[in-house]
Design a protein around this nucleic acid. Structure first.
Length: 590
RNA sequence: UGCCUGGUGGUGUAAUGGUAGCACAGCAGACUCUGACUCUGCUUGUCUAGGUUCGAGUCCUAGCCGGGCAGCCA
């Protein structure tokens, strides 16, 4: 197996840009960053951003910083930073671990002088180092404050006393220019004084703000004197009560990139309008090092899923699902618990490419790679989800006939295990039909079928109770059709799976399906109306005995049914709970 | 109807003035001790109209359609 599971090296407009910069030797090293806000779990959409940022870093021997964009203490929580960090490590493990970069524990940006100009820069260190921690925007609050003062001193920022409502009114509309705030031309000294008093807690939330002085008539709304700082008397999960003013995204993000030495800052299309502001702030500060630049790409939106954190949070809060890591959720945690491995996710996401076109990606493309990966790697087992009892009348009670079962036929030299055929076995209800449809290749009256890895059987008698309910099936086993026996190569049309009634275990199996019934639940006025009522079904199944204590994280193919993995939360010793990752492709219809 | 941005099979994505290709999905068949896998074949596309050119998905002009932007969210 190759150490690097990446498929072919991707090529797209962003890699072209980076490649050109590398040719030009524009930067010493390519540095990207993944900047999640710790206010929810990472999902499939983030996977594209993660794989882009880490991919570009990896392909150019660069680094990718994990930075928490934690500038809004009202919405953020430390719980999310831990979950996000774990999810990222999981997603890139064995692929781009070497690129994941943190800062030294407790580090803040260092002061330095470059060409007689003052500068700040934060040190970086491998995330593998024990004394490392993720970058955070909140670690830059001191420097950000210094930059804000520099902007004020150069006449490029001012303190505004307009209320949030008035600020909105003054901004104008897309078709009408805004009007200048009455505080726009305050003296620099007054701005400095007011800003310092904002910081010291003298003013209430919303009463003042720091604004960039750009152009109230700009066709780009984000250049109409955007806010840089707002007052929030709220404790922050990192900085505690040190601050009561917090920088806004536009001010914090570009400067965080700069402080970390980021060269390429990738984000999604809705930030295109912010790019001018990103550049304005950076160029206004006369910074001595090369400036980072922002490049935008289209979001990944798979069909039959909801992708916004707002909606996912609502599903969690309204208990549509059991939590952020519910196996039906499109979160990395949910997908992982479902049994989808990181390599499958990478393959899927990378296969969708990077462009600037918005669109919906067919979730079948993900299902395809999930099946393909698992087909290669998952060991096969026999399991019966909805059992009916079948009695092999020519086998004595108590007798165990050993059979060899292949663990994975995809292996070049497959290993085998032993399963025992006994007088009583269970087969799948679906594999028997008293009145079979045309082309039915399974067990039917007067028919014969092979029990996988065992022998061919003939149906002799259908036993029912007085009410006509099916009780059991009586069959005869053709024992000489077992592997190694004289008639082993005898052909029959159908092969079905089975499990010994006396040598099997009972286990809970959770059958998951798509959460929504429509391809685009996000386009619905209320997604609650299009929830798939059958997205989660739990049953008691009969499994091969060696499935009693499955290794966590291991996937199995239950033959003819699908891929299953032990649930990471609810499985107990000798009491496994299996999640169905996905069914096998099924082209048989009736 | 301000500014930005984008239109290639059903979906996603290539082709950077020179044979419109790939993947998924779909359909048909072969194989099969998994109706899986694998294999074979097939259906389906350059938003429209002009122009430049020997040659246009690609360049130009006009139009049509879609997405984004008016948080003290990110």
């Amino acid at each position: 197996m190759p150490a690097d599971p990446t498929p072919t090296e991707p090529k797209d407009f962003i890699r072209d840009i980076v490649a050109q910069h590398v040719d030009e030797k524009r930067y010493d090293k390519i540095v990207t960053r993944f900047p999640p806000e710790p206010n929810g779990y990472l999902h499939l959409g983030h996977a594209r951003a993660i794989l882009l940022n880490f991919g570009v870093a990896k392909e150019n021997q660069g680094q990718c910083n994990l930075r928490f964009d934690d500038t809004n203490p009202a919405k953020e929580d430390i719980h999310y930073v831990n979950a996000i960090t774990a999810d990222i490590k999981w997603l890139i493990e064995g692929w781009a671990d070497a690129q994941l970069t943190f800062k030294p524990k407790g580090a803040f940006p260092n002061s330095q002088t470059i060409d007689d100009r003052p500068d700040f820069q934060v040190a970086s260190i491998s995330a593998n180092s024990p004394d490392s921690e993720p970058f955070t925007a909140s670690a830059y609050f001191d420097q950000l404050y210094v930059y804000a003062i520099a902007l004020i001193k150069s006449g490029k920022a001012y303190v505004c006393d307009l209320s949030p409502e008035d600020t909105e009114k003054y901004r104008g509309t897309p078709t009408e220019p805004g009007t200048a705030s009455p505080f726009r031309n305050r003296a620099i000294a007054e701005n400095l004084d007011l800003f310092s008093r904002m910081r010291s807690g003298e003013f209430s939330d919303g009463s003042h703000s720091l604004r960039a002085k750009i152009n109230m008539a700009s066709p780009n709304l984000w250049l109409r004197d955007p806010l840089l700082y707002r007052i929030r008397h709220t404790a922050h999960h990192n900085t505690g009560n040190k601050w009561c003013i917090y920088p806004l995204y536009d001010f914090a993000h570009c400067l965080s990139d700069y402080l970390e030495g980021v060269t390429h800052s990738f984000c999604t299309l809705e930030f295109v309008a912010h790019r001018d502001l990103y550049d304005w702030i950076l160029t206004s500060l006369n910074l001595p090092r090369p400036l980072p630049h922002q490049y935008e790409f289209a979001k990944l939106i798979p069909s039959y899923t909801l992708m916004s954190k707002r909606n996912l949070l609502r599903m969690v809060q309204e208990k549509v699902v059991t939590g952020w890591d519910d196996p039906r959720m499109p979160t990395l945690a949910g997908l992982r618990r479902r049994g989808i491995n990181a390599k499958s996710l990478r393959r899927f996401v990378i296969s969708t490419g990077i462009t600037t076109q918005n669109g919906i990606t067919d979730i079948a493309a993900l299902e395809h790679v999930v099946r393909d990966e698992l087909n290669q790697t998952a060991e096969r087992r026999l399991a019966v989800l909805r059992p009916i009892k079948l009695v092999l009348t020519n086998i004595a009670a108590g007798e165990s006939i050993p059979c060899e079962a292949v663990n994975n036929p995809q292996d070049e030299t497959p290993t085998k295990r032993q399963i025992n055929l006994t007088r009583e076995v269970f087969i799948e209800q679906e594999d028997f039909a008293e009145a079979p449809p045309p082309k039915f290749r399974r067990l039917k009256p007067g028919g014969e079928v092979r029990l996988k890895y065992a022998c061919i059987i003939n149906l002799d008698e259908i036993v029912k109770d007085e009410a006509g309910n099916l009780l059991e099936l009586h069959c005869t086993a053709q024992l000489d059709t077992r592997s190694g026996q004289p008639n082993a190569s005898k052909k029959v049309k159908g092969t079905i799976h089975w499990v010994s009634a006396t040598e099997s275990i009972d286990a809970e199996v959770r059958l998951y399906d798509r959460l929504f019934t429509v391809p685009e639940p996000g386009a619905e006025d209320d997604f609650l109306k299009v929830i798939n009522p059958h997205s989660f079904v739990t049953i008691l199944a009969k499994l091969e005995p060696d499935l009693a204590n499955p290794p966590p994280g291991q996937s199995f193919q239950f033959e003819r049914l699908g891929y299953f993995t032990p649930d990471s939360k609810d499985s107990g010793s000798n009491k496994p709970v299996f999640n169905r990752t996905i069914t096998l492709r099924d082209t048989w219809e009736n």
